[in-house]
C-alpha cells in the first residue's frame, strides 16, 4: 500500500482543490475562504468592541467546520499516511536552501528553524512570530488569502483578487529573495 504514502502530483492536487469552489457554492452559496476563520475566532473569543468583530459569527459555523475538516485531512495525509521521504523539491532549491544553512530538509518545515526550542531564538521569533502576525494582519487587511482571492476570487473572475494575488506573490518573492537569507544568516 505504498501509494497511500506517496505525495500527489500537481495535476491531481490542483483540480481537487479547485473543485471545492463549486461544491461550496452548491452546498449553500458559500465562498471558499480560510483566513476569515481567524476573524471568526477573534469575534468568538475577544471581540473587544472592535467593529470588525461585531457580527454573528455563529452564522459562519460552516466556515469553522470546513477548516476543522482541513485539520482532519492534514492528520490523515500528513500524519497517518505521511510521506516518509523529504519533499522532492528541485535540485536548484536544495542548493539554495543548503546555501542558507538549512541542511535538514525533512518534514513539512525545516525542523531546526520551526520548533519549540527555536522560539527562544531571534530566527524562530522572526519566522514564526513576525511571519504569523503578518499573515493574520495582511490577510484581514486584504480581505482574503490564497484561497479566498487566489482560488475563489480568480476563478470567479474578480479583478480585485487578481491585484491581491499578484501582490501576495510580489511580497513573497521579495522576502524569499532578500529577507530570508539575511534572517538565516543571523
Amino acid at each position: 500500500m505504498d501509494i497511500l504514502y506517496k505525495p500527489w502530483p500537481w495535476y491531481v492536487a490542483g483540480p481537487l482543490l479547485g473543485l471545492s469552489v463549486p461544491v461550496l457554492l452548491w452546498l449553500g452559496n458559500k465562498r471558499l475562504g480560510i483566513s476569515s476563520t481567524m476573524r471568526h475566532l477573534c469575534a468568538m473569543v475577544a471581540p473587544a468592541r472592535i467593529p470588525l468583530f461585531q457580527y454573528n459569527w455563529k452564522a459562519e459555523t460552516w466556515n469553522l467546520v470546513f477548516v476543522a475538516g482541513i485539520l482532519i485531512g492534514g492528520a490523515l495525509a500528513g500524519g497517518v499516511f505521511a510521506n516518509p521521504e523529504p519533499v522532492a523539491v528541485s535540485e536548484a532549491t536544495r542548493a539554495t536552501l543548503t546555501g542558507w544553512g538549512v541542511s535538514n530538509q525533512t518534514g513539512l518545515v525545516p525542523p531546526e528553524l520551526f520548533s519549540w526550542a527555536s522560539l527562544a531564538s531571534l530566527q524562530g521569533l522572526l519566522l514564526m512570530g513576525a511571519g504569523g502576525f503578518l499573515v493574520g494582519f495582511g490577510t484581514r487587511y486584504a480581505q482574503g488569502c490564497t484561497s479566498g482571492h487566489g482560488i475563489f476570487g480568480l476563478s470567479t473572475l474578480q479583478w480585485p483578487s487578481l491585484v491581491a494575488t499578484a501582490s501576495f506573490f510580489a511580497g513573497g518573492i521579495v522576502v524569499s529573495y532578500f529577507v530570508l537569507p539575511f534572517i538565516l544568516s543571523l
Partner: peptide
C-alpha cells in the same frame, strides 16, 4: 488589496504557509 496583500506575502514567505496550511500542519501533528 495591495498593502495588506504585500504584508501577507511577506508572512507567507517567512512561515512558508498560508492560513489553510496552518490548519493542515497542526492536524499533521506539527
Amino acid at each position: 488589496t495591495v498593502i495588506g496583500s504585500l504584508l501577507f506575502g511577506f508572512g507567507w514567505a517567512l512561515t512558508g504557509a498560508c492560513p489553510g496550511p496552518f490548519y493542515a500542519q497542526i492536524g499533521a501533528g506539527l
